[in-house]
Design a protein around this nucleic acid. Structure first.
Lengths: 338, 338
DNA sequence: CTGAAAGCGCTTACAG
DNA sequence: CTGAAAGCGCTTACAG
């Protein structure tokens, strides 16, 4: 920077002010500085900047990868957030520690390395929230805890998604519908979305006046198979299932086919929050209900950055994203006479 | 740090030396310092540290997400690398700019923010390599360019994978096999792995004395359907296909089924480098050949860190990972009499 | 084995 | 509109 200043014939502080924009610089000076920076290939040192300004322009994305396994949906959240952050001049640090590794998190929050933190895979009772609050680092959630209060978040509108999925099936004549969600352990550990979706589903089914059989389900092929068996045992007249369990869905469909049911002629399947890529990987391709994950990631990053930059004082930013129904080949009219 | 020093009754420099381990500290002093740090909840400031030491303990993972779309395999590389980096005391910066956004990359490399860079989605002629070389930042590749020379890399052993896939099918009696790889544009843009795999496949087929029909294929459902049609047109006796195109495989299988072929009774499918999660999402579950992506990610991070820390001088670290065959439900004995 | 001091490259009140 | 100077919190030669 001193070299740039010398070349431009100004003081180092003027160069700095030109860079930060913290005070007006005459057009002529600004141009000389600009030219000098280009000539010398100058790059502002991030550490010196961070040391003085207490701002790193780095945000951390907390994705506890063991929480729910890897899935394309999470990847879309992460890359949506990352994209937007880079557009806004922020770097993204990927943090994959488990939810209960709180010392590591406290270290991250207090080191000053990051200006803010984006929480993914939020639990209803999430111990990370307390840590972040006490360390006074800015943060926003992708998802919600049990009582977000004044906290910023972006989340799926599960109520609306449940309604959309139920209505889709009701319109096609289905009257006995199953809801297969995540495994009991996940629900007990209190991942909020599983619970919010289940409750929304019950309300939607009640309002539509149809029978809903809700089941937990292990997140793998065999789990899906078992859930299908349990479902038909509980209500033999079931003609459709709504699933919130990406890994189990292929098992559900395989079990249906083995029982001689053709999808979608004899049995319909709708998945909540399965990204397009995964939906197209399944046979038949999956009808889905859910919001655009990348857009949610972008919104979460924007919320966090506004909070960091002090443009978001007072009122919290709390957004719910409506889901969209994409009808593919796994759902259709209810079979007659079953 | 001065507060810690005061509390421990030593000079700040002693605290610093205790932290860096750059010179011997008496046991008693070290313990007092340790205690003081714990008492005060001290966290070393990353920026001050980076400013003096020119080391950030941050590595960047360059994943140009538009290159090949999102896929679970890349996610495993990224998280494998991230995991290992965190274990080794490094943070991971996620960088999703396109391959041709070289100014941004030069900025990153010269800012001093990162100690090293991990390149993913490496092309045969990759413009990023020149940028990184001139900016003198340490880097390693997950994949290879056309002539890695003295560069560090970790890559799949495509020759061995091709051989394994071909042998699996030959052992089951298949004599006419198709190879469906990526779309023409991708191959022309010079993603190395597509080309290396195709060449390995040709050699393996030749050595096994079987007929191989190699085709390019658009990376989506319709592309897979079309590839299947082209394949049977080119060689009507084809009884199996090896695919290197995650998004197209469901299309291939759907087309086969529509033609009245049962999988695997009448037609076998093997996929290269499809992660377990995706393999289990398909119906029937997919037989795959490929190395453990997470292990490759970890190895790449380790290679980079050794290079950064100067433990890897002179000879480059170049590793190929062998694939494993996981037989699932999409492949079986060749049908008799076709 | 330990201390005192310089300096990394910026930002930002203070002064004009 | 611009400069001179202090200082952010560390690391590391220099000295003992």
């Amino acid at each position: 920077m001193v070299d740039v200043a010398r070349r431009a014939g100004v003081s180092p502080s003027t160069v700095s002010y030109a860079l930060t924009g913290a005070r007006p610089i005459s057009e002529a000076t600004r141009e000389r500085i600009q030219q000098a920076m280009v000539d010398m290939g100058y790059r502002r040192n991030v550490f010196a900047r961070g040391l003085k300004s207490k701002r790193s322009h780095i945000i951390a994305v907390l994705f506890p990868k063991d929480e729910r396994g890897m899935n394309l949906g999470s990847m879309e959240y992460i890359f949506g957030a990352s994209d937007h952050a880079q557009n806004r001049g922020y770097h993204v640090l990927l943090w994959t520690s488990r939810v209960d590794e709180l010392d590591d998190l406290a270290g991250l929050a207090q080191q000053g390395l990051v200006d803010g933190v984006l929480l993914m895979e939020v639990r209803l009772e999430d111990p990370r929230i307390e840590v972040l609050k006490t360390s006074e680092v800015a943060f926003a959630m992708l998802g919600q805890n049990v009582d977000p209060g004044e906290l910023d978040y972006v989340d799926t509108n599960f109520d609306q998604c449940a309604r959309l999925a139920v209505e889709h099936l009701v319109q096609q004549g289905h009257r006995n519908v199953g809801f297969v969600h995540q495994d009991a352990a996940t629900i007990e550990s209190g991942r909020g979305n599983a619970i919010r979706l289940r409750d929304g589903m019950r309300r939607a089914a009640q309002d539509a006046g149809i029978a809903l059989t809700a089941l937990t389900c292990q997140s793998h092929l065999a789990g899906g198979r078992q859930a299908f068996a349990e479902l038909l045992a509980a209500d033999p007249r079931t003609t459709a299932v709504i699933a919130f369990n990406e890994q189990a869905v292929p098992g559900i469909m395989a079990a249906a086919v083995e029982r001689g049911l053709r999808i979608p002629l004899d049995f319909s399947v709708v998945s909540i929050d399965v990204p397009e890529q995964a939906a197209l990987m399944m046979t038949p391709t999956m009808t889905t209900v859910g919001p655009c994950a990348a857009a949610m990631g972008r919104a979460a990053a924007e919320t966090l950055i506004r909070r960091i930059e002090g443009q978001q004082l007072g009122t919290p930013s709390q957004k719910l994203f409506d889901g969209e129904l994409v009808t593919r080949s796994s759902s259709g009219p209810a079979p007659v006479g079953r």
